[in-house]
Simulated scan of single mutants.
Amino acid sequence: MRFVLDTEQQDMAETLRDVLARADVPAIAREWAARDPARWRKLWGELGELGVTGLTVPAERGGLGLGPVELTVVLQECGYAGLPGPVIESLALLPALLPGFDGSEVGTALIPQVLPYALDADQAGAVYDCGPGGPRRLTGISLHRKESFDPARRLFEVEHTGSETVPSAPFEQAFDLAVLGCSAYLLGMGRRALDLATEHVKQRHQFGRPVGEFQAVKHHLADALLHLEFARPLVRAAALSVRGPQGSRDTSAAKLTAADSAHRAARTALQLHGAIGYTAEHELHRFLTKITALRQSWGTPAWHRDRLAQVLNPDAPIGTS
């Protein structure tokens, strides 16, 4: 089992990070939250030219035909940049679930129990109701905006007058791939929050010294980094096993660990920034809200713990000593 990225995967990550850095994602996120998708769509087109939007789409359908490991590489960089939009749906879930899904499409989905509202449904080309019974493309839809902790995660309750059954692959594996993608996205966001905190304590001075030179601050940063580094191999292991019999177990473990480590990094970053980290104008705020929202998305921590318990010992009563 190989846990180290090869040269091509490392080059992919570096290229994507450069593209996203040049695109000014913070400005794109603010515009996206304000329902101005122009620059987001331009960036999505650029990602399509790089092959990112067709990453896991088979080569015979015009995609790159790459696998879950490359998917985690891409989504980790998307998380590091804080790229808004139905990225996990369009890059992970729908290409795996729908054989006819075009890599250039932007789609979103509803999944009973774990995704009751459709993310950015007003900007998606199609809204799918997905579940073990098979996906349906909803028609005649009307959207009702719901409150979201993250302004750039625009959630919609979807009413519809009709639906179309579409050919699909097995739901469980596609769902696990999306959970894996969310884990990688969280890992990237956690690392970005930690990097923002590290840069801040280098620049902020107290008693004539950078705050980052104080031992207590170093301990907080090291502790957050340690948890992120422990989560990384779990995400990588899940990418290698997601298509196997232990896929559900490993993706739930990866989601739990990545979400907790990203949340810890965000809390550490907020503590080291102080009150300025709460302000909506500060870059850290964007990652605080998105990490908090995604920690509860694609299955809450309690949902994944229950799922893990059932996989590891299906006969044991849950919630008893």
Rank of each mutant, 00 (worst) to 15 (best):
M1T: 06
M1Q: 04
L5P: 00
E8S: 15
Q10D: 11
M12I: 04
E14P: 08
L16T: 12
A21Y: 10
A23I: 14
D24M: 05
V25C: 03
A29S: 15
E31W: 09
A33Q: 08
P37D: 02
A38S: 03
R39A: 11
K42H: 11
L43I: 08
G45H: 00
E46H: 09
L47P: 06
E49P: 00
G54A: 07
P58F: 08
G67V: 11
Y80F: 15
A81M: 04
P84E: 04
P84L: 06
S90R: 01
A92I: 02
L93R: 06
L93D: 00
P95L: 09
A96R: 14
G100A: 13
G100Y: 00
D102P: 06
S104D: 01
A109Y: 10
L110M: 02
I111D: 10
Q113L: 13
L115A: 11
A118H: 05
A124E: 03
G125E: 11
V127P: 01
C130P: 01
G131W: 13
G131F: 14
P132Y: 03
P135M: 07
R136F: 14
G140C: 07
I141T: 15
S142D: 12
S142Y: 01
K146V: 05
F149N: 13
S163N: 04
E164G: 06
A169C: 11
F175E: 00
D176T: 03
C182V: 11
A184E: 02
L186F: 13
L187E: 09
G188S: 08
R192A: 12
R192L: 10
A193F: 07
T198R: 15
T198E: 15
H205E: 15
R209W: 09
V211W: 01
F214Y: 12
A216Y: 06
K218F: 00
H219A: 11
H220M: 00
A222M: 07
A222P: 00
L226I: 05
L228V: 00
E229D: 15
E229K: 02
P233I: 09
L234G: 02
L234I: 07
S241F: 07
S241E: 12
R243L: 12
R243S: 09
Q246G: 06
R249G: 04
T251W: 07
A253F: 10
A253V: 07
T257I: 01
A258F: 01
A258C: 01
D260R: 12
S261N: 05
A265P: 06
T268H: 04
T268L: 02
L272S: 08
L272P: 00
G274P: 11
A275I: 08
H282Y: 00
L284M: 09
R286G: 14
R286K: 13
K290A: 14
K290T: 14
I291P: 04
T292R: 14
L294A: 01
P301I: 10
A302G: 06
A302H: 10
Q310D: 12
V311K: 05
L312N: 12
